[in-house]
């Protein structure tokens, strides 16, 4: 049971605030990755405020809980904000993001014991393996909860993800949902220009996965049914993949749809311009 179990309207409320948090966090330290963070806001908010059984008191082993792993660790702002707004730690701590002696490292880490983080990520391609390991142990422990992982799409250029994809199908890790943030952008430009992924759906299917597609992961009305369907498809002998189309920078008009805001912070004027578009719904930290 999710501790919030919010409906779409309440989720939208949280999403607005998470987006404000993201742009304010990266602006404050003039560094960080707003683009992918804004693009995955609906997804993270849906997991923590509706889909997952989880406990904000946080226990590393997470027995009896659904677990989430962020493989594309550079979108840490959206995760940190979502965790804080879900009660894992005080939202005031978001002000320490990327600063010296903070628990909110540039990329997620366990070294400083930030509640909600179970593995370091940032060097890409490692999250699916880790998450599948955790999912295997859930089976071994007789724990019927699920494991989620999010990767980027550019991240799929790393070979390790395909080792993990092969493993999960072979071992029938069917308590596992892998979502790909399919925004078509990476640092050096459009994914199709840098290193085309080809027919991604066919690739996952060829590896033995059940593949779902969400045409607009920035619309709760489209995202929630896909997440529900994915959950319903677990336990049937196949791992589940969701190809989730999103727009990098969604919610801030001048950041949308371009790889240019992958890892660049807004200046003072741009912050003002962004915040005008994002309603303060849960009080700024």
């Amino acid at each position: 049971m999710n501790p919030f179990n919010y409906e779409a309207e309440q989720l939208l409320n949280v999403a607005h605030q998470v987006r404000r948090d993201i742009v304010r966090m990266v602006h404050a330290v003039n560094s960080g990755h707003p683009g992918g963070s804004l693009g995955c806001t609906e997804f993270l908010v849906s997991l923590y405020f509706r889909q997952m059984t989880h406990k904000p008191e946080f226990d590393m082993n997470g027995i009896g809980e659904d677990l989430f792993f962020l493989s594309n660790g550079h979108i840490s702002p959206v995760w940190y904000s979502t965790l804080a707004r879900a009660g894992y730690f005080d939202p005031k701590e978001l002000a320490t993001f990327r600063k010296l002696n903070s628990r909110l490292q540039g990329h997620p880490a366990t070294e400083e014991h930030l509640p909600g983080i179970r593995i370091a990520s940032g060097s890409l391609g490692q999250g699916p393996s880790v998450a599948i390991g955790a999912a295997q142990v859930k089976k071994l422990n007789g724990d019927d909860k699920l494991v989620y992982v999010l990767t980027g799409d550019g991240e799929l250029e790393e070979g390790q993800v395909w080792e993990a994809a092969m493993y999960a199908a072979h071992h029938k890790v069917d308590n596992f949902i892998w979502t790909v943030d399919y925004n078509g952008q990476q640092i050096d430009g459009p994914v199709d220009a840098v290193m085309s992924l080809g027919n991604l759906r066919a690739k996952f299917e060829a590896f033995g996965w059940k593949v779902l597609h969400c045409e607009n992961g920035n619309d709760f009305a489209q995202l929630l049914p896909v997440l529900d369907e994915a959950k319903a498809l677990t336990g049937q002998g196949q791992p589940i993949c969701i190809l989730m189309n999103t727009q990098m920078g969604f919610g801030v008009d001048f950041m949308m749809g371009s790889h240019k805001w992958h890892g660049v912070a807004p200046n003072d004027a741009q912050l003002e311009q962004a915040l005008v578009q994002l309603k303060e719904t849960l009080n700024d930290y």
Partner: peptide, 28 residues
Amino acid sequence: PERFFQVGIAEANMIGLAAGMTIGGKIP
């Protein structure tokens, strides 16, 4: 047999799997 996991010739994946298996209390 139920506590053994064959990963094939994929060492990077093996290390990641092992890290994940500690979550839930196993010693890989």
